[in-house]
Computed example of a mutant assay.
Amino acid sequence: MIIFGTALLAVCHLLGIFLGDLLGQALGVKTNVGGVGIAMLLLIFARIYMQRRNMLPKLTELGVEYWGALYIPVVVAMAAQQDMVSALRGGPVALLSAIAAVAVCACVIAVINRTERPQAQTDGAPILHDNPLLTEAE
């Protein structure tokens, strides 16, 4: 069933690359614009859609989660490597924009963490082993 998660990722990736190429052509650029990001959004939306319709077995969901978690760091690393050469040639503007992007991300994460509602408290830790010595000591 995990192979279906891989197939879903492949379909989303191909569709994202195609849509990124179309977006690049529409903007008058001869390159893919946001294809990988579009692919990740398609994967997220496809997973949510399939979950709500009970079309996603648990093992397939695990496959989608695995590839989604693996896909993002690999793509970010590839993009960072490609952009590093042009950033070094770009001068201080590229460096300032990178620092600004990191600062904005840090601020957004801080705001999200502060506005998040606390989760309900559990009744206690689950008992893994029935050990009479532990229950007597308490």
Score class of each variant (00 low, 15 high):
V102C: 06
N54K: 10
I72R: 02
P57T: 13
G37F: 10
I38A: 06
A98V: 10
G37L: 15
R89K: 10
A106Y: 01
G34T: 03
G5E: 09
I72L: 15
Y66Q: 11
M40I: 11
R53D: 14
L56W: 06
A101K: 01
M84A: 14
P132K: 07
A103E: 05
I38Q: 03
I109R: 07
I112C: 11
L27N: 01
A79V: 14
A77F: 13
Y66F: 15
D130I: 13
H13S: 09
L19R: 00
G5L: 12
E136W: 01
R117A: 13
Y49D: 04
M50Y: 01
S86C: 05
M78D: 09
G28F: 09
F4Q: 08
V108L: 15
A80D: 09
D123Q: 07
C105G: 02
R117G: 00
G20Y: 02
G28I: 09
L56Y: 04
L133M: 01
L19Q: 05
I112A: 15
C12K: 02
M40D: 02
A103V: 13
V36F: 08
G37M: 12
I44W: 06
I112T: 10
V74L: 15
G34H: 01
L27V: 03
T122R: 07
A106V: 07
L27R: 09
I48F: 12
I127Q: 13
A103M: 12
A87I: 05
I112D: 08
P57H: 10
V104H: 03
C12Q: 04
R52E: 13
A7C: 12
G35S: 07
I2Q: 08
R117H: 08
A110G: 01
L62C: 03
G91C: 11
C105E: 04
P92L: 12
A98D: 12
M84F: 14
E65P: 00
P92A: 13
L15F: 11
H13V: 12
I38Y: 00
R47D: 09
